[in-house]
């Protein structure tokens, strides 16, 4: 356990730690889903979480946004620090915190409203009343999510009527509209076809310049393509974490190597 925690802390001097997860445990009822996981997530980097199904990747990423608050049976212990402040401490308002940590879900979940309103929704509920400022935010966010050219002539149509890949980019635009600092993505391309997946991956590469991105993925190839750093999860624990090319070419742990070379999972 201690060895793993140390591996997770392997930081290069050049980058700052944006999110520091220390000794995180998550339980669903009596099911111990995350066991003593520690990981440093670096600023302006893409961190990929890989591992077989049911190993706790999604549970881990949801803990960074306090989404477990909605699940009555879920219990979280340990620390998740965003810029050195524990988001689970009493002084932190989860609602304010979530504006800084955006989340893109596995299945696209556009709201049942127009394309424009989907993106304008976040700023509006967070107190932005100025219509022209909202319009600028909407256009910027849609452009940044590489969706603007496809939808600019039909912003008043329902967001639910878009294709799956477009819906997912709409959800990314929705997250970008709040100018978050960290973007969490829970298998954002798993419900999409290869072309839509390629678009999302290009987008992730661009997002890295302004945001800290954490992405859960089932696809090793995807982790290899988009991420700077990778953490390997197994049975609720982080087995190994480090720069992606090192994890993929010279893993320290035998179990990481077995997984990456396709011997299980």
């Amino acid at each position: 356990m201690i060895q793993r925690a140390i591996d997770g802390r392997e930081t290069s001097a050049a980058t700052a730690v944006k999110v520091r997860v220390s000794h995180l445990d998550v339980y669903y009822g009596s099911n111990h889903a995350i066991r003593d996981a520690s990981l440093d997530i670096e600023e302006n980097q893409v961190t990929a979480l890989i591992g077989p199904s049911g190993c706790g990747k999604s549970t881990f990423i949801r803990a960074i946004n306090r989404l477990h608050d909605l699940t009555p049976s879920a219990r979280v212990s340990g620390k998740v620090e965003l810029d050195d402040v524990d988001i689970y401490s009493r002084d932190v308002d989860p609602i304010v915190m979530r504006r800084r940590v955006g989340m893109v879900f596995q299945r696209p979940n556009p709201f049942p409203m127009s394309i424009y309103d989907n993106v304008a929704y976040g700023p509006r509920v967070n107190g932005e009343r100025n219509a022209s400022r909202i319009a600028v935010l909407v256009e910027d966010s849609l452009r940044h999510a590489a969706l603007w050219d496809e939808v600019k002539d039909r912003l008043s149509e329902s967001g639910v009527a878009l294709s799956g890949g477009q819906q997912q980019r709409l959800c990314i635009a929705r997250v970008l509209s709040l100018r978050p600092e960290v973007i969490l993505m829970d298998e954002p391309a798993s419900a999409l076809d290869p072309i839509a997946t390629a678009k999302i991956e290009e987008l992730i590469a661009e997002l890295r310049e302004q945001y800290t991105v954490v992405i859960v993925t089932h696809s090793m190839a995807q982790a290899g393509r988009v991420s700077d750093r990778t953490a390997f999860f197994l049975n609720g624990s982080i087995v190994e974490a480090g720069p992606t090319n090192q994890i993929f070419t010279r893993p320290k742990e035998r179990r990481t190597e077995d997984y990456i070379t396709g011997r299980f999972g």
């Binding site: 946004n65 989404l67 909605l70 609602i95 304010v96 979530r98 504006r99 955006g102 989340m103 879900f105 596995q106 299945r107 979940n109 709201f111 049942p112 409203m113 929704y121 976040g122 509920v125 967070n126 959800c171 929705r174 997250v175 709040l178």
Partner: peptide
Amino acid sequence: VPTAIREGALALGLPDYGGVIHVVLPA
């Protein structure tokens, strides 16, 4: 209404009842 929609609203920094009123009920 899928839970994902409610979580989506929550992840945008909305109090839970806000997501329920603005997003879940219209759906």
